[in-house]
Design a binder for these strands. Sequence first.
DNA 1: CAGACATATTGAAACGTTTCCAAATGTGTG
DNA 2: CACACATTTGGAAACGTTTCAATATGTCTG
Lengths: 333, 333
Amino acid sequence: MTIKDIAKETGYSIGTVSRVLNNHPNVSEKARKTIMEAVDRHGFILNVSAKNLKTVQSENIIIVVKGTFNELFPVMVQRIQMYFRETRYTLITEYVDEEADEVTRARQVCLEKKAIGLLILGGNKENFEKGFDRIKIPAVLVTNHAGDWGFENLSSVSTDDTEGAKKAVEFLLKKGHRNIALLGGTVGSDTSTQRRLGWEKAQEEFGIKKKDFGPCVGGRYSFEAGYEAMKKLLKSDKKVTGVFALADVMAIGAISAISDAGLSVPGDVSVIGYDGIPIGAYFCPKLTTIRQSIDKICDRSCEILVDCLENEGKTRHEFIPFTLDERQSVKKI
Amino acid sequence: MTIKDIAKETGYSIGTVSRVLNNHPNVSEKARKTIMEAVDRHGFILNVSAKNLKTVQSENIIIVVKGTFNELFPVMVQRIQMYFRETRYTLITEYVDEEADEVTRARQVCLEKKAIGLLILGGNKENFEKGFDRIKIPAVLVTNHAGDWGFENLSSVSTDDTEGAKKAVEFLLKKGHRNIALLGGTVGSDTSTQRRLGWEKAQEEFGIKKKDFGPCVGGRYSFEAGYEAMKKLLKSDKKVTGVFALADVMAIGAISAISDAGLSVPGDVSVIGYDGIPIGAYFCPKLTTIRQSIDKICDRSCEILVDCLENEGKTRHEFIPFTLDERQSVKKI
DNA sequence: CAGACATATTGAAACGTTTCCAAATGTGTG
DNA sequence: CACACATTTGGAAACGTTTCAATATGTCTG
């Protein structure tokens, strides 16, 4: 069943059928009705390959996900998937490893799939500086802020990570904690860098000298890494009362480690996380955290991309507000 | 840059270039080398639209995910995504709502995208009976068993849900529990039905009469539903000592509810889950559960599909072994 | 070295659209 | 009613491949 069959059946030419299918003006109401009726009756589906061949482009949007361990990402991909479900676009997912160059890979995939739009989940500035100018289609960086990166076709949607982290640490400080450990972060991750900055700022503004900052233990955003990092911290001689974990998953891993060490949260150590993942509200103790509006970040990213695609919208760099969800894992001392 | 340019540049015809690109026999070593060299030099990428137009099919595989709340699914999609990353196939994800007819939707999407293979995550028998015979491409049902559904081109990979559930409940029984509640399950979900069956079987074989079976509270697989279901159970006059949750997420929700009610797990109530999600190992108390090898289920599903696609492999129905991970949420009484 | 094969290559048609130009039809004006 | 103009329609080329029949080239055998 092709456009040709519809044409034959309705007595119109294929040109007219094509115009009807594409909502072109200059086609009579009568033709439109006759043709649509035949289309519906046969359940005719346009051959996308032929269309794309002719129009040179596709309706593919690529989402490149940088990092295969972050448990937040698959859920975000789901949300984005569901956004595009209602549209004519096809979303194609590509996961790239932590160490890989997400920008180069993005470029390749976009070329292969003839993509017209790009979303990048995670990623870091250096790789963008190296290769992003070769990507010519509208793109949105999700989760990181790219306001000062200076790319013409790159938008970004994120929370203000520095501010969020600062708020978290301030919260601990106000609760009387002074020796606040930083848990997590991998080199080359922009998010880590920003959040770490917030941790430093908060302490500075509270008058703590750089040399008196709490200890740092790196690790990627996972339960396991959080557990291991905390274990290491507990074994060391630093006596911390508060822990700021760069991600909720790490916070949970950390609490698990504390509990395994026979200590209690928040009795012996207070822990605050970052992200606001659902489990946080059900964990025991319930996790105090900086909650990003993951859903809003996703939706807004999609909206901006579509706007760039369909209305030649300008690129934008938006912060989505975060909130501090006070629950049970932080205690005043 | 098209095949034609490559042809012009190398002095061969486009037919020859095409054959080189498709690894056809009957092309000289010399031609192959000259052409590949030019291809690489220009970073030439074949126009998939043109190819698909000509060959009538695509290299698209669809994964239809039935259910947008199950937190396990996005992670499984990620795993499957990563499997196909190494192949020439393109995986296209489609989420369908809990109440929707996943089979009809799958058929539509396959048609639209000219898919050659199909994966379905979740789903229930009735919908398959209604419409699966209209799907003509190889398909694999992931997570459910379809051995006795009788479809020619449908394989399936799952754990033996009935056995798994039975094992879980037997474990509680052996620990001395007699009044064992069943938490979770939605009508029309095959997984729920199977697991519930296991719960019944275990009690029967233990000599418990049907009328003495523990209480059931339904709900979908989510923290929230688990929490609410457990709350309801606690408010009722049934005094259960053991809870079998049909999913880890529900188990965690339940534990949270128990803890909020001032009771302890496993002190007052023992809880066993099902799935083996990562958080289970870090939760407090650490969750005793039936662990499915999610990764293996995913990988095996992909392997079978590819085998059907490339080697005309026969359909298969495989069970992937599960294990009972004993941790801390169940106590002997 | 001629003939018979096997192997390698060419050329052209076809896939199902979109889009542009030209032709046909309709509508309003003086 | 003739003309200009707007609207609608038809026809054909073009997009970049694959594939098949036909042709060219090479190789072996007696």
